[in-house]
């Protein structure tokens, strides 16, 4: 048995927990402040809607008569006036957009800043002041595998797995504080996992309008139209 000094509890464990909680609240408030209103550009909405409309046309063309279908096909694919044959604004290409519009980059930066900077600072703070403490003991037995998780920063092979080091306590707080924060701040606080997902999907989010237009136009030109409504007369007569 290892005797844990109450001073360690008072001066290491509680301060870490308290600091993490404060930082969680602070981060929530800062993120709320910095969250700019994401107003989409009208041009990119228009491009997306055009593609959607053409997809609807392809999917449900059976409900249109030949004349109506050709009229719409012309609207999209006409060589001179077709919506898909216009010169597309190059800014709708995501790569170009990144170059020409620095606000997107700064947006990403501020988002990361609110997430990453506090983590680095608190990590360094804990590492500098509180490294090497054993702060708590888990009241139930654990397998050896947990050693890596619970005893980061304390490399003692003889120490029982159930003891928790200060650095590990910090990590447990970092990831486990969400529920407590939700209680304090109400729903919809920042969730680390959600932010990570957002960062992952960011690349796929942008629309590459010129290429998408071309692909959509090709498909529309290739498709065969047949008027299916006439068949319903037969069906209804039965």
């Amino acid at each position: 048995m290892l005797m844990l000094d109450p001073n360690v509890r008072n001066w290491v464990m509680i301060p870490i927990t308290f600091a993490m909680l404060l930082i969680g609240v602070l981060r929530h408030l800062v993120a709320k402040l910095m969250r700019g209103s994401a107003t989409a550009k009208i041009k990119s909405i228009q491009a997306k809607q055009l593609i959607q409309r053409s997809q609807y046309l392809r999917a449900h063309s059976g409900f249109l008569s030949r004349a109506a279908f050709n009229q719409r096909k012309e609207f999209f694919c006409d060589k001179e006036k077709g919506a898909f044959c216009q010169k597309v604004d190059p800014s709708l290409n995501p790569q170009q957009q990144m170059m020409s519009d620095p606000s997107m980059l700064s947006d990403m930066l501020t988002k990361n800043l609110t997430m990453v900077v506090p983590q680095i600072v608190t990590g360094a703070w804990v590492n500098f002041f509180f490294s090497g403490f054993v702060v708590a003991k888990v009241p139930f037995p654990l397998t050896q595998k947990f050693k890596l998780m619970l005893q980061r920063g304390v490399d003692l092979s003889s120490l029982d797995v159930t003891y928790i080091s200060s650095l590990s306590w910090y990590f447990l707080n970092l990831f486990g504080m969400q529920g407590l924060l939700q209680l304090i701040l109400g729903e919809k606080t920042f969730d680390d996992t959600q932010v990570m997902q957002q960062q992952m999907s960011m690349g796929a989010g942008g629309l590459d309008a010129p290429n998408a237009f071309k692909a959509e136009k090709d498909q529309l030109e290739m498709m065969q139209h047949n008027f299916r409504v006439a068949k319903f007369v037969e069906l209804a007569a039965k």
Partner: peptide, 16 residues
């Protein structure tokens, strides 16, 4: 005649 077709579609969608 086309209208007849669309009315038949409606009958189909609304189970007559």
């Amino acid at each position: 005649r086309q209208a007849v077709g669309y009315y038949s579609v409606v009958l189909d969608l609304t189970n007559g």
